[in-house]
């Protein structure tokens, strides 16, 4: 995902001299091409994320298009008030790109895990939240972010790390809503976002899960959620079970967002939630093992998928 971001960024920067990349001493080698082409448009702001975010907001107000890149806890949690005041309250089209969504930095421990970023960003009015499912989707999401920034709309893109596979799309409902399994909603539906989508698709590969559908949503603002809600309402009679799989804490993610819309619309649809437990993780282990131990286990997904 990191490389896909760097490639798309470099392409956009070629056509827009206003684009400027700010990084918090992160991104070894991935921006080599960008730096080679635009040495004056890369600023390593150092390990000083609060300043970096506000500097970016100041730049945006002066007509530049700043892209801010670093590891999620430092970009989002550390600088939350800077995002709130200087990007939110002051309405600046800054693109925040965080790396290490969920447990991507598995063995680096809880300080580097990102369980709460989506919940926090959902509280900022006008903030668009993108959780691309794979490298190809990163490009799609980043282009949208860049275009939104031109209208002073800020966005946050949650990347995983590196090495994620591209996922086969069965059907695209819109640029941010895609069928990853089956081309229509079936009675047993999974909804997912971000790079965990590949784990969901993998878990349901076997033929015995042929009656299951998987939809991904890679943008979590109200418009996209309403689109998804309408899709659910249209198929309400058919739906027997809906589950959301997301690599976040139980609080403040897609599950809460979608459930509250459904409640407001009086749609009688309960949604299962497969997510990380609401606790910090101290085990030193690989991402897949941590996911399975702390809530996102393939077998749970498979068990739910077999329910008629």
């Amino acid at each position: 995902m990191r490389n896909s971001f760097a490639t798309t960024l470099t392409e956009i920067a070629r056509n827009d001299p206003k684009v400027i990349l700010l990084a918090g001493d992160i991104g070894f080698r991935i921006f080599d091409k960008f730096i080679e082409e635009f040495p004056d448009r890369f600023i390593n702001c150092g390990i000083a994320e609060q300043n970096m975010v506000s500097v970016a907001a100041g730049m945006a107000s002066a007509g530049r298009r700043p892209i801010v890149y670093t590891i999620i806890p430092f970009l989002i949690m550390r600088s939350f008030e800077q995002i709130r005041v200087d990007i939110g309250i002051n309405q600046q089209g800054v693109v925040l790109v965080g790396v290490g969504g969920g447990l991507a930095y598995d063995k680096l421990g809880s300080t580097h895990h990102a369980y709460e970023d989506i919940a926090l960003m959902r509280t900022i009015p006008s903030m668009k939240i993108f959780t691309p499912i794979d490298p190809e989707d990163v490009s799609n999401c980043f282009i949208q972010s860049y275009n939104l920034a031109k209208s002073d709309i800020p966005s946050y893109i949650r990347l995983s790390k590196g090495g994620e596979p591209n996922i086969t799309r069965i059907k695209e409902v819109s640029s941010n809503i895609k069928f990853l399994k089956s081309s229509n909603i079936t009675s047993n539906l999974f909804i997912t976002h971000g790079s965990i989508s590949s784990l969901v698709v993998d878990a349901l590969e076997d033929n015995k899960y042929s009656n299951v559908s998987v939809i991904s949503i890679s943008e979590l603002s109200k418009d996209s959620l309403l689109k998804l809600t309408n899709l659910l309402i249209e198929n309400l009679q058919l739906l027997k079970q809906v589950s959301i799989v997301e690599e976040t804490f139980p609080t403040g993610g897609l599950h809460e967002a979608l459930s509250s819309i459904l409640m407001k619309e009086n749609v009688p649809l309960g949604i299962k939630h497969i997510c990380l437990d609401h606790r910090y993780i101290f085990d030193i282990n690989n991402r897949v093992s941590l996911l399975s131990k702390y809530g996102i286990e393939k077998s749970i997904i498979q068990e739910i998928a077999l329910k008629k």
Binding site: V55, A57, M59, P66, Q82, V85, I89, Q91
Partner: peptide, 28 residues
């Protein structure tokens, strides 16, 4: 912000204004 032509930023929380000014100054 915008309440008068000179007031180009909403401040109030301390420790923001200088970073903002630097971003503007870098760009202009």
């Amino acid at each position: 912000k915008g309440s008068s032509s000179s007031i180009t930023w909403s401040t109030g929380s301390l420790g923001h204004g200088l970073s903002i000014t630097l971003g503007k100054a870098f760009a202009s």
